[in-house]
Amino acid sequence: LIKGNHLSKKTGFGKLYFKDESRNPSGAFKDRPMAVGVSKAKEFGREIVVTASSGNAAASLATYAAKAGLKSYIFIPESTPPGKVSQAFVNGGIIIKVKGSYSNAYAVAKMAAREFHWMNITTTFLNPYAVEGDKTIAYELYHQLDRKVPDWILVPTGAGPLVFGIYKGFTELNFLGLTDKKPRMAAVQAEGCAPIVQAFESGSRKVDAWGTPGTIASAIADPLKGYEQDGELVLEIVHDSRGTAVAVSDDEILGAVFDLARNEGIYSEPGAAVSYAGFKKLSENNVIKEKQSVVCVITGHGLKDPGSAAENLNIPVIGPDLEELKSHLK
């Protein structure tokens, strides 16, 4: 957990924190559900595990399956960032690209698991053990904040099991009498793929699948096609916690990537930076108040998907000459 320094001063929020999940072994929060899911697969005597993934779950499953001595099959969209594909491949994952969106990869993984009796650890709500891994963030925050509960937790959201898991963890702590409140949860999506936000803003409790995603935040570009009920469960959490759901543009996301890196030294992929982009939007609209404590979950490392930020590179080239350097510095 990182206490905001420069961004706290710039925004006026003295209790702004970043839960940096890029420090996990494979560089993303997916290590939490995969650690539990793969452990259960080992316990059940399963030899083959499978997941659908937009990239981070792929790398994580391959990592933990390798450690456990299991074979892993991974179904990903064609558009998955090369860094994530490479990481999964190097760790021994058997990767198969599926045409179309993440929802198509999800459908193929589900069919394959049933047909070949593989254990499906897809990190939506499909595997109950994997979801349990997500709630460990709540336990860590409870201890890292000296047993205090933050007023708001902002979570990058695709299907939304992380929103559910974190809230479940705090709900359990509250049930045990260890806390006197629960956090308000903010599900943050990209404008180019925001089925949950669309339902929330319309006042509906029914989530409709999105069409073709169009966003730089590939990690959360989940149309929920065929499992719209996952989004409806997230909506329940948002309402129960008196929270909100908000969508941010690609420009806002890219701005958040640079803000986090240049002010706090946190290099995040676009799909992870949406939590801070969402915070900026909600605080500017006075939904989140200055005196409230806020945790932005940063779900994955920038090296997972550097492409969008790299497109903005404008790096000069000079010869090995001091005068040329001086001329450039002017």
Rank of each mutant, 00 (worst) to 15 (best):
Y276W: 08
K110H: 15
A261H: 11
K289W: 08
Y276E: 10
A107E: 14
I96D: 06
S241F: 08
F258I: 10
V274D: 15
K99C: 06
D208R: 13
D222A: 01
D259G: 03
M119D: 01
R242A: 13
Q87S: 14
T122D: 14
G45V: 06
F44P: 01
E324P: 11
N104Y: 15
G93D: 10
T80Q: 10
G177H: 07
N127S: 15
V188S: 09
K19S: 01
G55R: 00
T136H: 01
K206M: 09
N56D: 07
D134C: 08
T299I: 12
P223N: 12
G169Y: 14
D240S: 13
Q189P: 04
L313F: 14
T299C: 14
G177V: 03
E172I: 15
I266D: 03
G165K: 11
K40N: 07
G4N: 07
K84S: 06
E264D: 09
N127E: 10
S54P: 02
A221N: 02
P156T: 06
E290T: 12
E43Y: 15
T157D: 08
A105R: 00
A309D: 01
S22Y: 04
L70F: 12
F175D: 15
D20N: 15
P77S: 10
Y129S: 13
V248I: 06
K99Y: 13
Y102W: 09
Q198P: 05
A199Q: 07
A66I: 06
G133T: 11
A309M: 05
L322I: 14
L178W: 08
S54C: 02
I137S: 06
V207C: 09
I315P: 11
F164L: 11
A261Q: 09
P150C: 11
E311L: 11
D151R: 05
K10I: 07
V246F: 08
Q229L: 09
H239K: 13
L7N: 04
L70N: 13
G302A: 07
C296Y: 08
F170P: 06
I153N: 11
K182Y: 01
A256G: 03
H239S: 13
K181A: 14
G302L: 00
A138I: 10
I318T: 15
V295T: 11
G271S: 13
D240P: 00
Y139K: 05
V234E: 01
G93M: 09
L303Y: 11
L173N: 02
G278E: 00
